[in-house]
Design a protein around this nucleic acid. Sequence first.
DNA 1: GCCGTTTTCGGCCCGACTGTTTTCAGTCG
Length: 570
Amino acid sequence: MDNSDVSKALYEIADYLELQGVAFKPQAYRKAARNIEMLPGEIADLLNEDRLGEIPGVGKAIADKITELMKTGHLEYLEELRAKIPQGVIDLLSIPEIGPKTAMVLYRQLGIEDVDSLKKAIFEHRLSGLKGFGVKTEERILRGIRVFESRGGRIMLGNAFHSANKLIDYLRSKHADATVSVAGSLRRMKETIGDIDILVATSKPGEIMESFVSYDSVEDILAQGDTKSSVRLINGIQVDLRAVLESSYGAALQYFTGSKEHNVELRKLAISKEMKISEYGLFDRVSDELVAGADEAEVYDSLGLQYIPPELRENRGEIEVAMKRELPMLIEYDDLLGDLHCHTEWSDASGTIEEILRKASEHGYEYVGITDHSKSLRIARGLSEERLRKQIDVIHSLREETGGPFLLAGSEVDVLEDGKLDYPNEILEQLDYAIMSIHSKFNLDERSMTERIVTAMSNDVVKIFAHPTGRIIGQRLPYTFDLEKVIESAIDQDVALEINSFPERLDLNDTNVRRAVDAGAKIAIGSDAHDPSQLAYTRFGIATARRGWAKKSDVMNTLPLDTLRKMWGI
DNA sequence: GCCGTTTTCGGCCCGACTGTTTTCAGTCG
């Protein structure tokens, strides 16, 4: 019974209460559930120390329920709720267009408890017989089911980024006088995106909406109004477009960037200052006068806050810190001076060392490290000792003849089950540095895995621990190990923890970056490029660093080459 | 059910779009 089991139960309670039409309690349970999800430590420890009440949103009633659940593995209150309404009705809530009211009508009047029976009922036109339901409603719900079935989860940041930029370019090309910007979770650079939000400032909203819904890749128009339209693209991604006047562009950008939780806090803050905030601006509550609207930074300033970068807007304490004007100076998107994690055709990637070098030069880097796979990783054509020696020679000779970024000879070395590295030390010592990573034996118990990692870190040639948790978004959970101990060891042994910039990895993730940085560990942002074009992936790694509150000084490869070599022995 | 720089009680974010309504409810973000 861990943090996520507890928050899952609380979310379930919230859903049931919402179905029953209970007011306010659902929000209370969800708030508690969210805060437990974000808890840095184990909720079991808080329970043992009788400190559950310290979790924001957890009062006596919820604390009692958590206690019962954790001590007995059973929660009577939840069981009672489950007995009243079948669980399938809750699943209906994840279909767009179906909220609690609709779900309950479908269940009570037609006995619908799952998506399939809902589809059947629609095809038999049984919904249109219900009070308040017409043919259009049936069609709308059917569209919702299609969206639900096609999305199969959230989209990776890298994919959404690409789709959004293409669409934004299209809108800009057709409406040169309009201001077009991405908003929503994409602007916050969250690792996965639910849908794409785009904001336009224009005096002619109708024309923008017309262009938007007639975009080539639009499959289905879900809604079309003067200020707001929604479409589904052929790749299944939903895009919402909002249009506002220039005078409220800043407030709208703030509003549509979210997160929802951040905005809720901001509105409460506005109320406490006798103001109100909406997508049209920040207004004086009494006189209704506009306080700020055209400029996003002004909205924050007028609320007495330091400007909060989009990546921090998750209601994870940023508002309180901004109030004290103590937000960190986050690493910027052009702060990297090199990339220390790149693959070539020597192992499992495409592209030559020379091509990587050229790309690194285009990125304006001072240095770039070649780190192909080590010998045990046969599936990735890991380099034998002999080939690695040869590659080091090639790198040394290329280093002599080219200008441009300085070429470093590295290796992404597998950590074997016992914590030893995949090459003997006499070869490793010829490298400028090694990256350690785990690509096998993911199923060790927590103690063995932690021991394995800490042992590998103690090797002096190791400077970076790549994709430290091993998770792959939507495919593989992190392996089990003690992250706190690994962070400690990384600090002791002068090993940087990587943010792997590959869209499906982004590992460390934002919250773990924050833990590492808070503890004083150093971060390395690597592209893990398997094609020269993928050097550009570091954009997503930097975004993740920013979401983890990392400063430039926390990141190893923002250092100039000579400092990097001196400080890190590379 | 939680919470308190007006509060231990009375609040709890705000507006657009759609459909079926003839003044509004439901859903979404």
